[in-house]
Simulated assay, not measured.
Amino acid sequence: MSNPETEWLQRSLQGDEDAFACLVERYQNPVFNLCYRMLGDEFEAEDAAQETFWRAYQHLQRYDPQRSFITWLLSIAAHYCIDQQRKKHMPILAIDDLLEETLPDQAPDPERKTSQTEEQTAMRKLLETLNAQDRAAIVLRYWYDFSEEEIARALNLSASAVKSRLFRSRQALAHQWQVEAAKTAGKERKQDESPAF
């Protein structure tokens, strides 16, 4: 943590609301993005981000300074989003910006953009098949680069349980991706074979 963040955190621990507002401003984007990835709805993500910061403020005395503040904050967000999904008993929607985050920005290319959108939609459908904790583990690992130990602390799991969840989820996603790719290829083949009138 850089010096201003350390100072803001120390002042926040002493009850300085302005210092905590600086922390909120600093971390609002990563918290919102995590909530959006897990909930799939902009308005729900905004509510979840606000709730995350409120809970962090209420429980700031429980923060362990040996731990990264952003890791602690994202753990609160992940738990809240998992709880929200469990309450709704519905699948979690996937990441809309998956490829935009991982691919370099290039000149406008309509074909690439169309392909990108199709892949985002496919990934959204695949991630919907994972349960809330598996989804959280995948998001924290591959979009936030959390270590297995950090994920374990964030989700209150053992490190071996995290490894197992990540392994199973990757296998399931890879298998499902192949199945969907085969279906798409079959549909395209049928369209190519259709007689033209």
Rank of each mutant, 00 (worst) to 15 (best):
S115T: 04
R165G: 02
Q116I: 06
A172E: 01
Q106C: 05
E128R: 15
D134T: 06
A174H: 11
I82L: 02
H175S: 13
M123I: 08
N156E: 15
S158A: 09
A159Q: 10
L157T: 02
I92M: 12
D109E: 05
R165D: 03
R165V: 00
Q120G: 03
D97A: 12
T114H: 09
V139L: 12
Q84G: 01
A136I: 03
L93H: 12
T71Q: 15
I82H: 02
A182C: 01
Q85H: 11
R165E: 02
M123T: 05
D145K: 12
T121Y: 13
M123S: 07
L173G: 01
A136Y: 08
E128T: 03
R170Q: 13
D97H: 09
S169V: 09
R170M: 11
Y142S: 02
A172Q: 14
E149V: 06
I70N: 07
L98I: 05
P104V: 14
R135C: 13
L74K: 10
M123Y: 10
K113H: 13
R124E: 11
C81R: 05
L74A: 06
R86V: 01
I76Q: 06
R168K: 14
R112D: 04
I95M: 03
T129F: 04
R112Q: 14
D97Y: 12
R170N: 13
I76K: 10
L103A: 05
A137Y: 08
P91G: 03
V139E: 10
L73G: 01
Y142R: 07
Q106W: 10
A172S: 14
H79M: 07
L166N: 07
C81F: 11
V162D: 07
R170H: 09
V139Y: 07
L73T: 11
T114N: 15
S115P: 00
I82P: 00
Q176R: 15
Q84H: 15
E149S: 12
